[in-house]
């Protein structure tokens, strides 16, 4: 199997995976934010397709999803947005299973995966779809050459972890702490243990949940991660911009700076440039 775009994004040192919610607060603003995040050093864009019942999200992303839905974001508008992205980085679609299930024929994920592949999506992260229920989505992803990224949690047992490592493609999403998404000050003590348990795999390992600063990014890559995933810290920045009525370009500048800080922090965690 040839290496996917997603896996290749981790080849040149620690990767920065940056998450924003599509359509928060408008599709045009999201497009501008994505350009800024890539400018700041983002290697993978994780673009949230908003669902009304986001059980894995903390308050920050719940509110962003509400803003995006209130502004009219839909799966079709999402795919249009993805198709318009110029930046040369892979885009991972992060959403909940019901939206994939309902698209097109309303009978499973195949129709959405096909449309997503067409629009330029490289893979999926679906937080309410554990590996146990992932058969139909895996099959659809395989048919279209897309990756399906599984989340390894701090509670994940050894046998579940090995099952996921067998099936995950692109990278493995290491959930850095129990609970929901949301920016935190500290790196969870669970993170080094989680990474140690994944040492035996060649699949790139990216840590998410709670990462918000360059210093945290440094700690995480120093613990052996191949990348960091940041979401709520960006979304907080977007929310502040909405609250203060700042123009999207101003918000985009802040996002670029934050991405640059995170990327530099992640790079600092690795003693020398690493070439796999």
């Amino acid at each position: 199997m040839t290496r996917s775009d997603l896996a290749a994004a981790f080849d040149d040192g620690p990767a920065l995976v940056s998450y924003v919610v599509a359509g928060d607060p408008t599709p045009a603003a999201t497009a501008e934010y994505i350009d800024a995040l890539v400018d700041g050093g983002t290697d993978v864009i994780e673009l949230g397709l908003p669902f009304s019942e986001p059980v894995a999200e903390g308050t920050t992303i719940q509110n962003a999803i509400k803003r995006a839905l209130d502004a009219g974001m839909t799966p079709d508008a999402y795919l249009d947005l993805v198709a318009r992205i110029d930046a040369d980085v892979p885009v991972v679609c992060m959403t909940y299973y019901n939206l994939l299930f309902q698209y097109g024929d309303r009978a499973g994920p195949a129709a959405f995966v096909s449309a997503a592949a067409e629009a330029g999506v490289s893979g999926f992260v679906v937080p309410d779809l554990p590996v146990d229920e992932s058969g139909p989505l895996r099959e659809a992803c395989r048919a279209h050459g897309l990756d399906l990224v599984f989340v390894v949690a701090p509670t994940t047992t050894a046998d579940r972890r090995e099952r996921m490592l067998d099936l995950t493609t692109g990278f493995v999403y290491v959930q850095g702490r129990v609970g929901t998404t949301g920016a935190r000050e500290e790196v969870s003590a669970a993170t080094p243990d989680a990474l140690a348990a994944l040492q035996h795999t060649d699949i790139p390992k990216a840590v998410g949940f709670g990462v918000s600063s360059g210093e945290q990014a440094r700690e995480i890559t120093a613990s052996g991660a191949d990348g960091v995933i940041v979401g709520s810290a960006y979304v907080d920045t977007v929310a502040d911009g909405v609250a203060d009525d700042d123009p999207p370009s101003v918000v985009a500048d802040r996002l670029r700076d934050l991405a640059a800080e995170l990327k530099a922090g992640a790079a600092r965690g690795v003693p020398e440039p690493e070439h796999k």
């Binding site: 937080p127 554990p130 146990d132 229920e133 989340v151 949690a153 509670t155 994940t156 959930q175």
Partner: peptide, 12 residues
């Protein structure tokens, strides 16, 4: 039916 929950809950 089934078990459509985040991985963090699956062991529980």
């Amino acid at each position: 039916g089934g078990q459509y929950v985040p991985e963090v809950l699956m062991p529980a």
